[in-house]
Design a protein around this nucleic acid. Sequence first.
DNA 1: ACAAAAAAGAGGATTTTCCCTGTTTTTTTA
DNA 2: TAAAAAAACAGGGAAAATCCTCTTTTTTGT
Lengths: 217, 217
Amino acid sequence: MTTKPPYHIAIVDDHALFAKSLEKLINSFEDFDVIFHAINGFDLQNKLKERELLPDVILLDINMPVMNGLETMEWLSNHHSKIKVLALTMEDEESLMIKMIRSGARGYLLKDIYPDALKAAILEVIEKGFYYTEEVNIALMNALHKKETPDADLKLKKKEITFIKLASTEMTYKEIAEEMNLSPKTIDGYRQELFNKLHLKNRVGLVLYAMKNNLID
Amino acid sequence: MTTKPPYHIAIVDDHALFAKSLEKLINSFEDFDVIFHAINGFDLQNKLKERELLPDVILLDINMPVMNGLETMEWLSNHHSKIKVLALTMEDEESLMIKMIRSGARGYLLKDIYPDALKAAILEVIEKGFYYTEEVNIALMNALHKKETPDADLKLKKKEITFIKLASTEMTYKEIAEEMNLSPKTIDGYRQELFNKLHLKNRVGLVLYAMKNNLID
DNA sequence: ACAAAAAAGAGGATTTTCCCTGTTTTTTTA
DNA sequence: TAAAAAAACAGGGAAAATCCTCTTTTTTGT
């Protein structure tokens, strides 16, 4: 399966100014053609359905409000595994990087790279199938070498997430119990369970966990 | 003082990919010319010093690591008050918006706007001297109408900030007291004082305050 | 140097959080 | 449909956090 120029690119990013600028930049590269722009994962799903021409490469922003990069990546892996995806993000968070790659992203780029690097990355993804920078390699090594604390991707239940969000406010547990229509003792059970499996010492730890995992803010 | 085309624009943003893309976009507008790109406030200072041609408008990103948008804006007001500055940011935080405008920004743009809106904004800044969107006007109104709660920019003492940072960890107050070489009772005083003046109900509130004000993370 | 202000510290009581070991109820699954 | 698993709930106690009023020490302004 050899892809031939012009290469078709799609951009998924909720910041129109960035997306449109990027489109112009990429179109200025020889042999590259931006075929559409989606503002989030849902929009991407619709646009992929209604078009017969699929992109060769998708540049996927990770931080989006409606359907974020990770969810979108998982959907893409299941429905369009042939399309190569380059994740695009503002900050390099190691854990997120790992998750994106595990979900099928072919590369991971920070938005502070220079245009030439982007062009090289897209080309490499098309030709070699992946593009890994030094940072990504280091993160991958770290992930492999850590025997303990896979800690990162254990799944929380809906009620646990609801609880964490409420615990990350000024409400008391009693108030949270009322809000969730559960006994304070049940709430206490949630708390204890979460403390145990997330290795937390107190409620502040829970708030910090919520922050790091984008459950709040 | 009438500015004539071509209009000279400078971009200050640490994300090279965005900055370079934006440059291409703006250069594609008629009568607009990007004369340089700086990656933060310091870089901007240097570039303004070493050039004889000054920009008419600066597009200034607010979230930068080295010298952020607000600090840069204040320097610009003092040293280059004739250059019009449009603040550019990912998210609309009302308090930050107010601060930027108070420091001399002529307008405030979110990165999710469309290119046409950017072009219109730059033109309006050049012609009318300012560009205020609906959001900014609302924020300004809110700021004016709020008699109480200037709440936002009250000054915290060094030790209070140290305390808040430590309170935003899993340490107990006793441990924090040891860390700061103070009696637990003194720490309790700090806590109470902060609760009172920030209108907080508990320690979680303090952590949330620290988050919102970038004292942590 | 001295009064005023700010910072540090204390006593003591109440509430909330935290922790452990259980039972009862509901849901899942073989 | 019976057994197993998960979810909800409870008692009771220790630790931490919260709240109030108050005294002592240090710093500051003039």
